[in-house]
Amino acid sequence: MAEKFLAEYLRLSVEDGDIISNDTKAESDSIRHQRELIARYIRDRQLYPAIRPLEFVDDGYSGTNFVEVR
């Protein structure tokens, strides 16, 4: 049987901008909070216990600065 994955998609909030210094950006609070909420939701409901989560993160990109790659 093929291995199954649970896809988790985290995306930057427009209001979130965590510039540390010299334009270095830490992981945004929005991404961290989304990760915690998704993990808690899955854990509390005991969803997909045998399926490994696969995380996709768009930190630093939003609908306002997304560039299509061809």
Rank of each mutant, 00 (worst) to 15 (best):
R70W: 08
L37H: 04
E27A: 13
R32P: 04
E15N: 06
R11G: 04
R32S: 09
E68G: 07
A7F: 11
S28Q: 01
A50R: 14
A50Y: 15
L47P: 03
I38Y: 01
A2H: 05
G60R: 00
G63T: 11
R43C: 09
N65G: 01
S21N: 13
K25I: 09
F56V: 02
Y9T: 06
P49L: 02
G17M: 12
L12Y: 05
F66I: 03
R11N: 06
D18K: 08
Y41A: 08
R40P: 02
V14H: 12
Q46D: 10
Y48C: 09
L10C: 02
I20K: 11
E27V: 11
A50S: 15
R43F: 13
V69L: 13
K25C: 13
I19Y: 07
E3N: 09
D18V: 13
E27W: 12
S13L: 04
G63R: 12
G63E: 15
R32K: 15
S21K: 14
T64A: 10
R35T: 03
D23W: 08
V57L: 03
Y61L: 07
V14C: 11
L12T: 10
E36Y: 08
F66R: 11
T64V: 12
D59I: 00
V57A: 01
R32N: 09
N65A: 00
S28C: 03
S28K: 02
V57M: 02
L6P: 00
Q46I: 05
S30D: 04
K4P: 00
Q46Y: 12
L12F: 04
S21H: 14
E15A: 11
F5T: 07
A39E: 05
L10H: 01
E55P: 04
A2T: 07
S28E: 03
H33I: 12
S21P: 05
I38W: 01
G17D: 15
E36F: 08
Y61I: 06
H33W: 13
M1Y: 06
F5K: 11
D18H: 10
A50E: 15
H33M: 15
D29H: 14
